[in-house]
Design a protein around this nucleic acid. Structure first.
Lengths: 225, 225
DNA sequence: ACCTGAACACCGTTCAAGT
DNA sequence: ACCTGAACACCGTTCAAGT
């Protein structure tokens, strides 16, 4: 027997990057982004904080890998092969939107480091449907770029709103407050916002997100070679 | 005479929030987001770190106010009143894109706290042009939402790429590396990315961003009541 | 009312030492 | 090869004490 008793939960096999990323996601989901530190993470993994650095370069890589894990899982869950192209694009966009909304700690960790296979899958899936949809070859790169940037950009902004709502009022409260503020804006200086204020509380963020996808696709299909 | 000589640069008037925000922007622009701490900021302002908290609640509010200051300045500089509606929208979008690109520390600080007048000005300016463009009233809210979300979301993602490029290779280097990686992808599994790889190095992010604006507007104008 | 700056309660990251 | 955990060099934020 060694002097120290074996610690409960001490692993017997080597850590893996996947284990670390999954533990990080568990902390992020249950306690939020502020709770993810190398100390809480190493405690949960029953190891020393320095051990994590053997597998992961730094916190940015950790958050990036966690984000890509969520994206890849969302793509796996969104079964799209048998759908018509436009429906497939809408299904992929919805999957990303819902995944970000369910894991609102996802922020600006959307870069394309090597090994970000989840994002690559989304990129390819969207691009492939544009060919099937009949978007002219000369427009394809721009349409694809607009779509993937829109999807990830808007989903990330929505997630950030959800995160802020979590730590305070509900989303309905926030929209109500915003509608009231815009309704009190000077109608001669802000006629549009003054008018659109009434539509804020009732609207569905997800539906509006998908309406934007349709606008881009409609614009793309109007183009002829 | 007091025992301690008056410190050089000691202010004689009270701090203002505007002074703090401008000093913060100066640090962010010249030394990056990691260099902005309450210690560097209070040193530059010749005050104590706690003094800043008399005027600003916390770092999130500081970064949010700095972001809105940049947006407001960009809107002021982008003279759009005499343009045709579509050109005005393109000018506003370009102004936001360029401002974010020039201040790449702008990240996810895009929320709508009270007093964010810069973002409100962009929102109103875009909305007003949609009326002038003849977008049907029933579509206006969705088209407006798609446009402003696209503009801020894509501009923020581009800024984040610019920030990452700063602390390493150039943007051209990064695009070249990405093109090479995508070019080596299995062409049967990733046909679209394999093909689009060749277009990556030569493309202009700003032009592609504007192409997305046009797609949304074209999609919107195709709708009839 | 506004400022000072030490103190508090943390961080991410490194690294000599272990197995 | 992989892990340990103390140590380093910081942070944001608070607050008693000043003017």
């Amino acid at each position: 027997m060694s002097k120290k008793p074996a610690r409960a939960g001490r692993r017997t096999e080597a850590l893996t990057k996947a284990q670390i990323v999954e533990a990080a996601i568990a902390i992020l989901d249950s306690e939020g982004v502020a709770a993810l530190t190398f100390r809480t993470l190493s405690t949960r993994l029953a190891t020393g904080s320095g051990a994590i650095y053997w597998h992961i370069a730094n916190k940015e890589e950790l958050l990036g890998a966690a984000t890509d894990h969520i994206v890849a899982a969302a793509m796996d869950a969104a079964k799209v092969p048998n759908r018509k192209p436009r429906e497939a694009i809408r299904a992929i966009a919805t999957a990303v939107f819902d995944a970000f909304d369910a894991h609102p700690w996802i922020g600006g960790q959307l870069s394309l480091a090597p090994g970000r296979t989840g994002m690559l899958q989304v990129f390819e899936a969207i691009g492939g449907r544009l060919v099937a949809l009949g978007v002219p070859a000369k427009d394809r790169f721009d349409v694809w770029s607009a779509l993937v940037n829109y999807i990830f950009g808007v989903a990330a902004q929505n997630a950030d709103n959800a995160r802020r709502a979590e730590e305070g009022r509900t989303r309905e409260d926030m929209l109500g407050t915003l509608a009231e503020a815009w309704g009190q804006l000077d109608a001669s200086q802000f006629p549009f916002l003054h008018e659109v204020a009434v539509q804020l509380p009732g609207h569905d963020d997800r539906e509006q997100f998908l309406a934007g996808i349709d606008l881009i696709l409609d614009g793309a299909l109007e183009r002829r070679p």
